[in-house]
């Protein structure tokens, strides 16, 4: 198995560090490959597509058999769903996701830097501690959290939700960022050392630009998890600062015949993240490929 001990070329120019040399397998795939790949892709996407389509059906058409892929579209469901307020939910979710992600990065970047490049002796234990904060089932801490929130006046507030989402995404952010920092070639640090750069300058001028794709990927992951979070939002924030997942379940009512309305509200709820994910997928893959494993 002595196939490759090819040393990776050392990247001298920090700005061009981002995986230029790597890249997808350039081999052109066969026609069969193409067909299979498309088939699998469409199959995996089908439930989502069907949800989108159902949102444009009438309630009766939504449950009609055989299931229709071609039909007279209607915006009736979107009108019903939007006749309440959608924007406050959207705004709450956007603020909770973005602010918590900003806080996550603020805490995680320095921590990951320290763990990767200035590792304390017990760095593994510290990393494990962060991951272990994700072990507690949300329902298990909900009553303590509720009581703490009540005492701190955080129930039903945006602050409370942001605090929790920050804690929720901190472990994975540190984990990811640490591995990106470790990818930084040591000679870059050496060079910086020679220059006598201080930590702040080292960070902002050299390290962060180098791992920018990794940072982008971390930000996306953090936003995705925060946007999609349901349980804390329902339990602690619903009265006052309800987020998009709560908007969505409002259409599972006792009224009956709810599929199309549900599909419409789901579509609205998932749309921002799906669009973000579609636009950002290259960054996601690129970012994760920077290191990801150590």
């Amino acid at each position: 198995m002595a196939v490759a001990t090819t040393a990776r070329p050392v990247v001298r120019q920090p700005a061009r560090f981002a995986i230029r040399r790597r890249g997808a397998n350039k081999e052109q795939a066969s026609a069969l490959w193409t067909v299979v790949a498309w088939g699998v892709g469409l199959l995996a996407f089908f439930p989502v597509l069907y949800m989108f389509l159902t949102a444009f059906k009438t309630e009766t058409a939504a449950v009609s058999l055989p299931p229709r892929l071609i039909f007279q579209p209607t915006l009736e469901q979107f009108r019903t769903v939007l006749s309440g307020d959608f924007l406050p939910f959207f705004r709450n979710s956007a603020i909770a996701s973005l602010v918590s992600t900003a806080l996550v990065m603020l805490l995680a970047v320095p921590a990951a830097y320290a763990l990767a490049l200035r590792p304390p002796k017990k760095w593994k234990d510290i990393l494990f501690f962060f991951i272990s904060t994700r072990f507690m089932p949300a329902a298990g801490v909900i009553v303590p959290l509720y009581i703490i929130f009540r005492e701190a006046g955080l129930l039903g507030t945006m602050r409370g939700l942001i605090i929790l989402y920050t804690a929720m995404n901190l472990p994975i952010a540190i984990w990811m960022l640490r591995s990106f920092f470790e990818e930084v070639p040591k000679d870059v640090l050496d060079a910086a050392e020679v220059d006598g750069a201080n930590v702040m300058r080292l960070m902002t001028e050299i390290l962060l630009p180098m791992i920018a794709p990794g940072i982008a990927a971390t930000i996306f992951i953090s936003i995705i998890f925060a946007w999609n979070e349901f349980f804390f939002a329902v339990s602690l924030a619903a009265a006052g600062t309800a987020t998009v997942p709560i908007f969505m379940v409002k259409f599972v009512t006792s009224e009956g015949l709810f599929w199309a309305k549900l599909a419409a509200s789901s579509t609205l709820a998932v749309l921002p993240i799906v669009l973000l994910g579609w636009v950002a997928q290259r960054q996601l893959v690129r970012g994760l490929s920077m290191g990801a494993v150590k």
């Binding site: 989108f52 444009f56 579209p73 915006l75 979107f78 009108r79 939007l82 006749s83 609205l268 749309l271 799906v274 669009l275 579609w278 636009v279």
Partner: peptide, 16 residues
Amino acid sequence: AVLMVLVPLLTAIAGR
């Protein structure tokens, strides 16, 4: 893709 999703959405909002 963005247009495919946005157009009906905007129409829906306009319909509001």
